[in-house]
Nucleic acid binder design. Structure first.
Length: 420
DNA sequence: TCTGGGGTCCTAGGACCC
DNA sequence: TCTGGGGTCCTAGGACCC
């Protein structure tokens, strides 16, 4: 048996943890750059504010109903997520952290008559220890556990246990196709066109036939819907394949110098993350997108990629290559809204093919990066390449909008909540 | 006027090998 | 007019997830 534990309206719930005055009030959290709504509390959803909608389209609703609006505060959400996960682990040792707000738990050792009580205990403990409400779905496959969780949320029961086919048959008939894990817009349209109307009808298909007409992924999905587990718990995340750092600008940028600063900054951030994971990159790509979105592409090509002579995690070398790519992409007279840097062909630092002559240089570079990372982690100040610009952390022309940012309550001493 | 960011997996098709 | 069989590697594009 698997449990899927999923936080309710996670980002909105995080904003409420230190703001109990917001309980019962509609809350929405915006994407980076304050562009779209990416999470809404139940009250916000009841007002018709859908996830993904651009903020400007719901301004009136927000004003009229006194909706509390927040910029994304990933520092806070990341920390509360870690707390949720470690709290789950106090009750169930085997936990797969599936996303920032979801975890699959291995309940194979729990007797069937203890499942419901354990689900309720999980809910109660996370709510009490972390302050974030969660729902729990329990079933013999991950796909069914997802659906059971969904139902627990929708019905407000909090915990849903499906132990045998009798338990899920009825619910599957009420489950629309696109509620199924792995069915998105396109697949849902294709399945509907075939005359399928709900999850039970999909489950009734022959997996071999589905394999032939769709792919192995959908064949597995059909089996999982019948209680046959095809997906196991992934306790060690597979090695990462790419790191992307990509941001829209607070306002459109025309000239090259600020773009150079942004590329410097994004490359440094991506490289810092890569070093933290002990990886090296073999290739680097840069994307450039014009603003506004949706206008026909004015820039072509919009990305370039280059290989490194030798895999590296040295910000200086990566930034030098990234800037070359940027200068090949940039065209005068266009307005740019976004740039992205991607590191690929990642490999563990210990396993990279070395060069015959570069050993000494590489070692010096690694030492320098280690010192930079050490200073930047120390909390006492930051160092960076001068190409990023001379001011640290200050807003500049290309930095994103974050007008409604809440404090980093749990990770910055200066932001500690005061109690009186 | 104003529209996120970060990932993975699968398949098809081209290009090449013997 | 007629023309094998068995592979690998790479990339682009589609589709999905949160």
């Amino acid at each position: 048996m698997f449990a899927l534990v999923d936080c309710n309206s996670f980002y909105a719930s995080c904003e409420r943890v230190f703001r109990p005055d917001l309980c019962g009030r509609p809350v929405v959290v915006l994407s980076n750059n304050d562009g779209c709504v990416v999470a809404g509390s139940a009250e916000a959803k009841a007002l018709g504010i859908r996830t993904g909608v651009p903020l400007f389209q719901v301004r009136e609703l927000v004003r009229k109903h006194g909706v509390a609006v927040f910029s994304s505060n990933y520092t806070l959400y990341g920390d509360l997520s870690r707390r949720v996960m470690s709290t789950l682990q106090t009750l169930v040792p085997t936990v797969e952290v599936y996303s920032i707000d979801e975890a699959f738990l291995d309940l194979s050792m729990v007797p069937e008559d203890g499942l419901l009580a354990l689900g309720e205990q999980l809910r109660e403990r996370v709510g009490r220890w972390v302050g974030v409400p969660v729902c729990v779905g329990i079933a013999p496959t991950k796909t069914l556990a997802k659906l059971a969780n969904h139902r627990a949320k929708r019905l407000g029961t909090g915990v849903e246990v499906w132990a045998t086919a009798d338990d899920w048959q009825g619910p599957l008939q009420e489950t629309p196709l696109d509620d199924i894990w792995g069915v998105g817009r396109r697949l849902s349209a294709r399945l509907s066109a075939m005359g399928l109307g709900n999850a039970a009808e999909l489950a009734a298909l022959d997996p071999g036939w589905v394999r032939q007409h769709f792919s192995v992924v959908q064949a597995r999905m059909v089996r999982e819907l019948n209680g046959e587990p095809c997906l196991s718990l992934e306790l060690q995340p597979p090695p990462r394949q790419q790191i992307i750092y990509s941001r829209s600008f607070g306002q459109a940028v025309v000239s090259l110098p600020p773009l150079r600063q942004a590329v410097n900054d994004y490359t440094a951030r991506a490289a810092e993350k890569m070093r933290a994971e002990g990886m090296l990159a073999g290739r680097i790509s840069v994307w450039l997108r014009t603003a506004p979105m949706g206008k026909p592409q004015q820039l072509w090509p919009d990305s370039f990629t280059t290989g490194l002579p030798q895999a590296s995690a040295d910000t200086r070398e990566l930034a030098r290559l990234a800037l070359q790519l940027l200068e090949r992409l940039w065209k005068p007279g266009l307005r740019y809204g976004k740039v992205a840097v991607m590191l690929t062909e990642l490999c563990p630092a210990g396993q990279a093919q070395g060069g015959l002559f570069e050993a000494q240089q590489t070692q010096k570079g690694e030492a320098l990066m280690a010192v930079m990372d050490g200073i930047n982690r120390s909390g006492k100040g930051r160092v960076w390449l001068a190409g990023r610009g001379m001011k640290s952390g200050e807003a500049c022309i290309w930095s994103m909008r974050r007008a409604y940012l809440s404090p980093a309550y749990t990770t910055r001493l200066g932001d500690l909540p005061r109690v009186s």
